[in-house]
Amino acid sequence: MSNEQIKNLEEIFEARIARDEKIEAKDWMPEKYRKTHIRQISQHAHSEIVGMLPEGNWISRAPSLRRKAALLAKVQDEAGHGLYLYSACETLGVSREELYQQLHSGKAKYSSIFNYPTLTWADMGAIGWLVDGAAIINQVPLCNTSFGPYARAMVRVCKEESFHQRQGFEIMLKLCNGSKEQKDMAQDALNRWWWPSLMMLGPTDAESVHTEQSMKWKLKRKSNDDLRQQFIDQTVPQADLLGLTIPDPDLKLNKQTGSYDFGAIDWDEFWQVVKGHGPCNKERIRARVAAWDNGAWVRDAAMAHAAKKDEQKIKIAI
């Protein structure tokens, strides 16, 4: 194809998206669109399955049977969400195994928040309340994104996700209505998860490389800073209700804007964690690699068994 032809196709393509038409996997798409989507969807999928680890930690230690069942169901949902998203990504011609390779080699990124440790039971509450809360803000607009398989996966994810934040908040509520030790535990969790949750919504607009293009493709509907403000504005009253203090002395309601002004985010920490120097980066990847490597003989056996069964079927047929 000549450059001119490609340019023409690109214009038609962009016009389709502008008209809110969905792009399906086998449609012609600019190479950059394909690559950007593989990157974003796989990052999202990786975040789901790495995210299983810090919470999975507490399944065996959940304080009641009811909580144990809820946490199991939640972590299971994350596996499901990872699966939907990997599947969406696979429609673009990349296999789940290739995507795993990228994760295992450190080439692919995932949400940095999961590189923080879960130290107490209250962290299960804080993650549900804050991390899932921030994730929902990020994800709801994606139900309308331009790439059909991603949008459909996100509809399913968002539908299932709604119980996650509620179960997290309920954990916090119970702690805050409990003993002093429980309340302290809840405050400590908020202290540790607050800033990473704000960072989770992405670097400030000035430093965000992908925003403009992503907006056009409806991979993003609002800027990182707008999303962050939305998150803070909805979360502060919830913290008040719990009787917890947000660990930011500069946090103050701005009467003019109706929004909360907040203190400076430590972006050095953010970039350190992104670069692999967070408290648990190594453990998380090691756990994923171990699961994959230790499972190789199982996956191989299943394939070998399937081949044997097929052979038998053929023999019987003959």
């Binding site: 939907y84 789940r96 996956r299 299943a302 394939m303 068994h305």
Partner: peptide
């Protein structure tokens, strides 16, 4: 509904 990976139809 979507897709998934499996070694054979039963799985």
């Amino acid at each position: 509904f979507g897709s998934l990976h499996a070694a054979d139809a039963d799985m």
